[in-house]
Amino acid sequence: MKRWLVPMLFLLAGGTGAAPVIAAAPAVELHGHRFSVEFATDDASREHGLMMRTTLASDHGMLFVFPYQASQGFWMKNTLMPLDILYFNTDRRLVSIRSNVPPCKADPCPVYPSNAPARYVLELSAGTANRIGVRVGDELKIDGDVGTVR
């Protein structure tokens, strides 16, 4: 009975004998540095962003993807940690940097707009942009499927 149990469980689990396929986590590369990211591609996820989080690992971030290129503005309502906010155009070139943006402690919260039209916005832990030496014009490389943007 035992010698049949393992092969039977393998077949029931959909085993084919091939090595399992492990999907790579979504990531971006900027100025030679790789960051694991969460994608915010719909209105609800873009609105919630990194709210209510108290920490963000130095090699993690959130990439906001908009269905259009336009002036983008972010605020820090209910965001509990300072962030760097980096704005990229449709060509994924950095067009604007807002460094060390503090959490909003009282309404009304200030808005931090891009200096030029943007389609992608990357939020990283405060100080990261300066630490890795990003500059306007740097290219953002995106690994992973940003899915359907809504």
Rank of each mutant, 00 (worst) to 15 (best):
Y112Q: 07
V134C: 03
Y120H: 09
Y68S: 02
G144C: 04
R135N: 14
T90M: 00
N89S: 04
R119A: 15
A13F: 07
Y68K: 06
D59H: 09
H31S: 15
A116I: 04
N115K: 12
L12M: 13
V136E: 09
D145Q: 05
M1R: 06
E29D: 05
A23Y: 01
P110T: 03
E47T: 07
S96C: 11
K2R: 11
R92G: 03
M62N: 02
F35S: 03
L94Y: 04
N89V: 02
D143E: 06
K2T: 01
M81P: 07
M76H: 08
V149T: 13
V21A: 11
M81V: 10
T54A: 12
G137A: 08
N115F: 00
L63F: 00
A27W: 00
R98K: 12
G49A: 11
N130R: 15
P82K: 09
E139Q: 08
A57I: 08
F74D: 05
S71K: 06
D59C: 03
W4T: 08
C109V: 11
L9P: 12
H60G: 08
A18P: 04
F74P: 01
P20G: 02
K2I: 00
L11P: 05
P113T: 00
L80W: 11
A70N: 14
L56V: 11
D43T: 08
L5W: 03
A106K: 11
G32D: 06
D143V: 10
P110W: 01
F39I: 13
E123L: 02
S45Q: 10
F35W: 05
P20H: 04
V146M: 02
G144A: 02
A40K: 03
C104S: 09
K141F: 03
D107Y: 13
F35D: 07
C104F: 09
N115M: 09
A129P: 10
A13P: 08
E139Y: 08
S125C: 05
P20Q: 04
L140N: 08
R131W: 13
R131P: 13
G144F: 00
G14C: 11
E38I: 12
F10Y: 15
A23N: 10
N130L: 14
T90K: 10
D143N: 10
G127E: 06
R3E: 01
K2A: 07
D42N: 15
M51H: 02
A106I: 04
M1T: 05
P82S: 13
G15M: 05
G32S: 09
T16I: 08
L12P: 12
K2H: 00
V136Y: 00
G61L: 12
N130D: 15
S125L: 14
K2W: 03
E38W: 00
E123V: 01
R53F: 10
V136C: 03
L11Q: 06
Y120F: 15
R135K: 09
T79A: 15
R93V: 02
V149P: 01
A126P: 09
F74L: 09
E29R: 14
P82N: 12
G32V: 06
T54F: 15
D138E: 02
E47P: 00
G127V: 13
F64P: 07
R46K: 03
M1S: 02
N130Y: 15
G17L: 10
